[in-house]
Simulated assay, not measured.
Amino acid sequence: MANIIESNHANPEEFYISLKEKLEQQHNFPEEYLFKFIIPSDSGKITEILKVFDGFKYTLSNRESSNGKYTSVSVNCFVLDADQVVDIYQKVGKIEGVMML
């Protein structure tokens, strides 16, 4: 399943370079950054995502879709710079079935 944030880019490397530039223009790091993901309703997937955030200060909220098939996961995390945001997206992007918003 393709990640939503990468869907308009044939080359993931170019996407992440572009993302970093946009983050640096639009954010004043260090700051709290909100990561949003959609996953098939599976507690194992949430655990995999949270492993990426080990060592970070974060808060988690999640909500199951009305039919129970999907879960939206929001992680509000303190990050130092755009590089950390990109690194987190790259690591979560390797988890099968996760859609990044």
Rank of each mutant, 00 (worst) to 15 (best):
N3Q: 15
I4W: 00
K51S: 09
Q25K: 15
Q26F: 13
I38P: 00
M1S: 12
D87M: 05
T47S: 14
A2L: 14
V85G: 03
G44L: 04
I39Q: 03
F15M: 08
T59Q: 14
K91H: 01
S41C: 06
K57P: 03
V79A: 13
N76W: 07
I46S: 05
K45Y: 04
I88E: 03
Q90I: 13
V92P: 01
S61A: 15
S65Q: 02
V86K: 02
Q25T: 02
T47V: 06
N3F: 04
S43T: 14
G68W: 12
E6V: 03
L101W: 11
G68A: 06
S41I: 05
K36I: 06
F53P: 03
N62S: 15
G68S: 05
S65E: 08
N11W: 07
K20Q: 11
Y70C: 00
S43N: 13
S7P: 00
C77P: 03
I95W: 02
N67H: 05
Q90G: 03
S43D: 11
L80C: 06
S74Y: 05
M1W: 02
I39A: 04
F15S: 07
I95K: 06
V85D: 13
L50R: 07
E31W: 09
Y89I: 10
L101A: 10
K20P: 00
D54P: 04
A2H: 07
T59R: 12
N76Q: 12
S66N: 05
M100N: 05
E24G: 09
S66T: 09
E6R: 02
I17K: 15
A82W: 02
M99D: 12
F53L: 02
V86T: 08
D42H: 07
G68E: 05
T59S: 14
L23S: 10
D42P: 02
R63F: 07
E14P: 01
L50H: 05
H9D: 12
E96M: 06
R63N: 14
S65P: 06
D54W: 04
N3D: 10
A10K: 14
E31I: 08
V79K: 08
V92K: 08
K57G: 10
V75P: 10
P30S: 09
